[in-house]
């Protein structure tokens, strides 16, 4: 286990370096200038130039790049140009919401996508397969923001079952927070649940046609043992990867969900940062997301090793 982790640290460092470079380049090719944004249309060229010097934006790109890398090594993302606080603090303030939202959405997608996928794949063209396909088509063709607005309209405004927006005041307890996060969680989980359903189904169908399933049936085992003990664990391998990747990619999709539901999370921070060209915040968020992505990949890898003895063996 330790060996598996340490084996990967080298490659993780390389990946993060490449990501940092890409992030830097992307944040600088977005057209626009933060100094003119902050000073407004009435600012003179002089004022703008002075602010750019304060922020170090007058220096050659390569110098800025090296400074950026130097900060990253110290795990320092710098200070926001607009919020008047360090980027790390700004992210931390909003991380609880976004992380809770992503975990909730991942749980919802796993809870709905996987069982339905297993049932659909175990009995191809059966009742659950038809139901699953119908839901998958529906889920894949509806845009999240639209589903979000519909849910708000009916469940929150008309029926009053859920709050319309926000996630409670600063003193709100976890139950109240959860209540606020259910609708956005459902919306955020939709595409993932659909993807998970389809991957689980395909994987189950593939596994059910394997020789060892025929062996299990030839042993006299009943369908539930064949499916749950012999098929499911094998079918889980690609599913685990997809859960990990979609969980990581979800952070990107919180931008829309947080906007629709008026949630002050990381997604919201990104929107503001892009609109105002807040480079340090943009870079900080992108680097953190990339870091999370790498960490989740590592976790998926370790899960693989735990599930599949063939992978376990190959690294020893």
């Amino acid at each position: 286990m330790f060996r598996a982790v340490s084996n990967r640290l080298g490659s993780i460092a390389t990946v993060m370096f490449i990501v940092a470079t890409v992030v830097f380049v992307i944040s600088r090719v977005i057209p626009g200038d933060p100094a003119s944004v902050v000073l407004g249309a009435a600012a003179t060229q002089d004022e703008i130039a002075r602010l750019r010097i304060d922020w170090g934006l007058d220096k050659p790109l390569i110098v800025q790049y090296v400074a950026f890398l130097g900060q990253l090594i110290r795990l320092d993302f710098g200070t926001s140009l607009f919020l008047g606080q360090p980027v790390a603090a700004a992210m931390l303030e909003r991380a609880e919401l976004t992380i809770s939202l992503c975990i909730l959405a991942t749980l919802i997608s796993v809870l709905f996508g996987m069982p339905l996928g297993i049932l659909a794949g175990a009995r191809r063209d059966g009742l659950f397969d038809r139901l699953g396909s119908a839901l998958a088509i529906l889920g894949a063709s509806l845009p999240s923001f639209w589903v979000g607005l519909i849910l708000i309209r009916f469940l929150a405004v008309d029926l009053g079952w859920f709050p319309v927006s926000g996630w409670g005041g600063p003193e709100a307890g976890w139950a109240e927070r959860l209540h606020h996060l259910i609708l956005p969680g459902v919306v955020l989980s939709l595409p993932n649940a659909v993807l998970l359903l389809r991957i689980t189904r395909t994987s189950m169908i593939d596994v059910m046609s394997q020789d060892y399933i025929r062996t299990a049936r030839a042993k006299g085992l009943g369908p539930s043992v064949v499916i749950l003990r012999h098929a499911l664990r094998n079918a889980l391998l690609p599913v685990v990867t997809v859960i990990g990747l979609t969980a990581a990619l979800m952070i990107g999709r919180t931008v829309v969900t947080e906007t629709v539901f008026g949630l002050p999370g990381i997604g919201n921070l990104v929107v503001q940062a892009v609109l105002r060209r807040d480079y340090p915040v943009l870079q900080g968020v992108l680097m953190t997301v990339a870091g999370l992505y790498v960490v989740i990949n590592l976790i998926v890898d370790l899960l693989y090793r735990w599930i599949d003895p063939r992978v376990r063996g190959s690294l020893q």
Partner: peptide, 23 residues
């Protein structure tokens, strides 16, 4: 029939690699 399979009539197959569950 399930009580017969594996108990009264057992079966072995051509591909011993794929006929055993890898996990």
């Amino acid at each position: 029939m399930r009580a017969v399979r594996g108990r009264q009539i057992a079966m072995i197959f051509q591909e011993p690699m794929t006929s055993l569950n890898p996990l």
